[in-house]
């Protein structure tokens, strides 16, 4: 009896370990474009390690069900089950957020800071490192990625469901939006 119980417990543990191992196998496929631990090495691809779990899981499901426009990710996530999406979101949310501070010229940074204080800081924090629960950190996120993402919010050609973000982006002049992205991209921890 005792042995059976022990065997069951061990089998249960092995099962959980295997499931966790499999999520890590799945998560490693993301590294090819988003970096080991979700820390991107390319300016147009976002870092995803340490982003909030709900943000990640929502955004992937919105792509999957065509509620949000993307160009590549919408195709990729359609092959994942909702359980896999949730597990990936939880996995990457557990990774530390590792800012990659990028240089920018002082005028752009000053202009960006003004724009951020007026239009972005409320949800993302002044440096991007103190976001609301459902907003992503932006400090040391790749500036070029953020610029492109802001262009999606400003363009009529993309379905972007987040009302508040859409309004904020559309209020900004393109040059201000770009400067804001550079400001966030320049921030460290």
């Amino acid at each position: 009896m005792r042995n059976t119980l022990l065997a069951l417990i061990l089998a249960g543990r092995a099962g959980t370990a295997a499931a966790r191992g499999n999520i890590e196998v799945l998560a490693r496929t993301c590294n090819s474009c988003h970096g080991v631990g979700g820390v991107s090495a390319g300016a147009t691809m976002p870092s995803i390690g340490g982003l909030p779990r709900d943000y990640l899981s929502n955004i992937m499901k919105q792509w999957k069900y065509d509620e949000r426009s993307a160009i590549t990710m919408n195709r990729i996530v359609k092959g994942l089950s909702n359980d896999e999406i949730d597990a990936l979101a939880a996995y990457f949310a557990q990774q530390p957020w590792v800012p990659v501070p990028q240089k920018a010229n002082p005028e752009t940074l000053a202009r960006g800071k003004t724009e951020v204080d007026n239009n972005c800081a409320d949800c993302h924090g002044a440096s991007g490192g103190d976001p609301d629960v459902d907003a992503p950190p932006l400090n040391g996120q790749w500036a070029r990625y953020m610029e492109l993402e802001l262009q999606k919010y400003q363009s009529k050609e993309f379905k972007m469901p987040h009302r508040k973000m859409r309004k904020a982006a559309q209020q900004a002049k393109p040059a201000d939006a770009s400067a804001a992205a550079r400001h966030f991209g320049a921030q460290g921890r």
Partner: peptide, 17 residues
């Protein structure tokens, strides 16, 4: 236009990975 830019980020990450 965006995919032309993503191509560069993709390659850099792939090389790094």
């Amino acid at each position: 236009k965006m995919e032309a830019e993503y191509a560069d980020g993709w390659l850099r990450n792939l090389m790094a990975d």
